[in-house]
């Protein structure tokens, strides 16, 4: 049970939201889908006196904005799966959403933006955002701030979101790229152990490896893919210098399998 007295806020504007976050700094949490924060509050792992629900801000939409697909912070995995725009313009997001661990309840409540802001290394979302070159659009005391996904994930459970800031939306470039994806988990109920998203854009092939380290790792596979020489494993192994360990899998395992996961994502890309 949530042990603290809790004040619920549902601001109508970004400015109002930021004002609340600033006023109650240190004693406030942001509510997206709530699938992570609420159970943690029930288990008293997070304590706060104020909760800011973003649902009054109109952030639950997927829209096409020029060169970008804009994904609101309140867009659920289910929304991603239902979106024609995502299917057409950002199919990797759809792949990721279709492969998350959890059933209908999670798909209908949990948000990709929330997962990004939680910053769990063992998550499906960060590596895919980095792979797509997404931009994280934050709102804070100084107004809007745009952070490339590659710089957004700072450490385990730490992101670039600063005091008074919250995620408004994510902008994913509408690039005509080929993608491949592979997720390794221990069983149906297991979170991701290692994921790989491979993007071929023009002449370059870049793999982004998730869950293997505290933040997503990028690898330029262009030379090994083009040369046909199978040096991927070595490249990846050498790159995963500080692998992530949790109860499900230690860092050694993650490092041992990361190369295979990347190769499978490449194979997935080739098979289209």
């Amino acid at each position: 049970m949530i042990r603290t007295s809790l004040r619920y806020h549902r601001p109508a504007t970004p400015e109002e939201s930021t004002a609340i976050l600033v006023e109650y700094a240190g004693d406030v949490v942001v509510l997206g889908g709530g699938t992570m924060i609420l159970p943690m509050m029930h288990r008293a792992e997070v304590e706060a006196g104020h909760i800011v629900d973003l649902r009054g801000l109109g952030l639950a939409t997927v829209t096409e904005e020029g060169r970008y697909v804009r994904i609101g912070a309140m867009v659920t995995y289910g929304d991603l799966l239902d979106s024609d725009v995502v299917a057409r313009e950002a199919p990797l997001l759809r792949r990721m959403a279709g492969a998350i661990t959890g059933g209908n309840q999670l798909r209908n409540l949990a948000t990709a933006g929330g997962a990004a802001c939680y910053g769990n290394p063992s998550s499906d979302v960060p590596a895919v955002l980095v792979a797509l070159g997404a931009t994280m659009c934050l709102h804070g005391p100084a107004g809007e701030r745009r952070v490339p996904a590659a710089e957004f994930f700072v450490d385990a459970f730490r992101t670039a979101v600063g005091g008074g800031e919250f995620l408004m939306w994510m902008e994913v470039p509408r690039l005509v790229v080929e993608v491949g994806y592979h997720k390794l988990k221990l069983c149906e109920g297991s979170g991701p152990i290692v994921t790989a998203a491979v993007v071929r854009d023009g002449g370059r092939t870049i793999a982004t490896v998730g869950a293997a380290s505290v933040t997503p790792l990028r690898f330029d596979l262009t030379s090994c893919v083009d040369s046909g020489v199978d040096t991927v494993d070595e490249l990846i192994r050498d790159g995963v210098v500080n692998p992530w360990t949790d109860v499900l899998a230690d860092g050694r395992y993650r490092r041992d399998v990361a190369g295979a996961v990347v190769r499978r994502a490449v194979a997935d890309l080739r098979e289209g």
């Binding site: 288990r43 069983c187 149906e188 109920g189 297991s190 109860v247 499900l248």
Partner: peptide, 27 residues
């Protein structure tokens, strides 16, 4: 995969079903 691990100091490590994995239909 089901396991209730302890660390060497005697702390239980599986506290939720994200750490204690039970089979689901697709397994």
């Amino acid at each position: 995969f089901e396991e209730l691990p302890y660390d060497s100091a005697g702390q239980p490590l599986a506290r939720t079903f994200t750490q204690y994995l039970v089979p689901r239909a697709n397994d």
